[in-house]
Computed example of a mutant assay.
Amino acid sequence: MEQTVYPKCLRNCNNNLQLGNVYLRYYGRDIPNLITLYEIEKPLFYAYTEIKNISNEIANKELSDYIIKGLFTLAIAHFETMLSDFSKKILQFYPQKLSLFKKENITLSVNNLNDGRLISQIIENEMNRIFYSNLNEQIKILQKISGIQIDSNILDIDRLIEIKETRNLLLHNNLIVNDLYLDKTKSVKRAHEKGDAINIDKEYFEKSILHILRVLENIIDQVREKYKHNSLIKLLVKVWRFTFKNEIIKIEDFCTLNYIEDTIDGPFNFPTFLSSSEKSKPSVNSVLKI
């Protein structure tokens, strides 16, 4: 699976626009949504790349049990972090979806209120609360706020739960089955009696990582399909129209829209006849930080 090709004009941004933070800073001030596929795909593809590299590492070498267990733990951590980071990223662009969650008491500091990070903190608090819940609930939340539906046959949630609970046994109980493992695992169990020992050998590792990679590929495919129209050009056009309310002032008259590379080309001839209100609003460059 290849990463979506970033427009060359983003090379100075380290492929990280941080437009979610910009949008939250001005949320409620009638600015256009600044979402792009490039930004929301980033936590997904980062996790996929790291887990793929881990899979390749163990496939090509004879490793000790300690290294296998360490890499297994790292791979699961990348997957769990992806679930949280991707959900946070979506909420940055659609903070109204916070209404989907049960509200808990949220502690807000004066500094957060003063520097515009109020919504960011709410999102952080809500995600931290949710992602301490069970894996099934985490997957449901991800699907709900992103608007995708992971293929249930590929997801195989019971298998994912067993993989996660094996990691928990490794870290907390030396791979000795306890009540938590027996209670949380469903149709997929590798032991049925408390006190039994399970193992993480190379075969189990490879099958588990392959399953996680397939789930990630399915998520990425669906995100790309759902958000494929959130291109950089579409964003630039929205910001242009926000800046210049007069429909006579068209972006196409001042630059060339390059749909193939998803960017704008020069020469650039920006208008000199701006109204006072247009001059007072953020420019395209100041909003996008590029």
Rank of each mutant, 00 (worst) to 15 (best):
I157N: 04
D158C: 12
D158Y: 14
R159A: 08
R159W: 11
R159Y: 13
R159Q: 03
L160Q: 12
L160A: 14
I161F: 06
I161E: 08
I161N: 03
E162K: 15
I163F: 03
K164D: 09
K164P: 01
E165D: 15
R167T: 10
R167C: 02
N168F: 05
N168A: 00
N168E: 04
L169A: 00
L169M: 07
L171V: 13
H172E: 05
H172G: 12
H172P: 11
H172N: 15
N173I: 07
N174I: 07
N174Y: 12
N174E: 09
V177L: 01
V177S: 02
N178L: 06
N178R: 11
N178P: 04
D179W: 10
L180E: 08
L180C: 03
Y181R: 03
L182K: 10
D183T: 14
K184W: 13
K184L: 06
K186V: 09
S187Q: 10
S187C: 01
V188W: 03
K189A: 10
K189Q: 14
K189L: 07
K189R: 14
R190M: 06
R190I: 07
H192Q: 11
E193N: 09
E193M: 11
E193G: 01
E193Q: 04
D196T: 10
D196L: 13
D196K: 14
D196A: 13
A197W: 05
A197M: 12
A197N: 05
I198G: 01
I198H: 04
N199K: 08
N199S: 08
N199Q: 11
I200W: 00
I200L: 00
D201A: 11
D201I: 08
K202P: 05
K202G: 05
E203V: 05
E203M: 01
E203W: 07
E203F: 01
Y204A: 00
Y204P: 08
Y204R: 08
F205K: 10
E206H: 14
K207D: 03
K207N: 15
K207Q: 14
I209H: 09
I209Q: 01
L210K: 15
L210N: 15
L210Y: 15
H211P: 03
L213F: 08
L213S: 02
R214D: 04
V215T: 00
V215G: 00
L216I: 14
N218P: 09
N218R: 07
N218L: 02
N218S: 05
I219R: 02
I219P: 02
I219V: 09
I220Q: 06
D221S: 15
D221P: 08
D221M: 08
Q222V: 06
Q222F: 01
V223C: 06
V223F: 05
R224A: 06
R224L: 04
R224M: 10
E225N: 13
E225S: 12
E225V: 09
K226L: 13
Y227C: 03
K228P: 13
H229Q: 15
H229F: 15
H229P: 10
N230Y: 14
N230T: 06
S231T: 14
L232M: 12
I233L: 11
K234A: 07
K234M: 11
L235N: 00
L235W: 02
L235R: 07
L236R: 13
L236T: 05
L236W: 12
V237H: 09
V237R: 09
V237W: 06
V239Y: 01
W240I: 02
W240D: 07
R241H: 13
F242V: 11
T243D: 01
T243L: 02
F244M: 01
F244G: 01
F244W: 09
K245E: 15
K245I: 15
N246A: 03
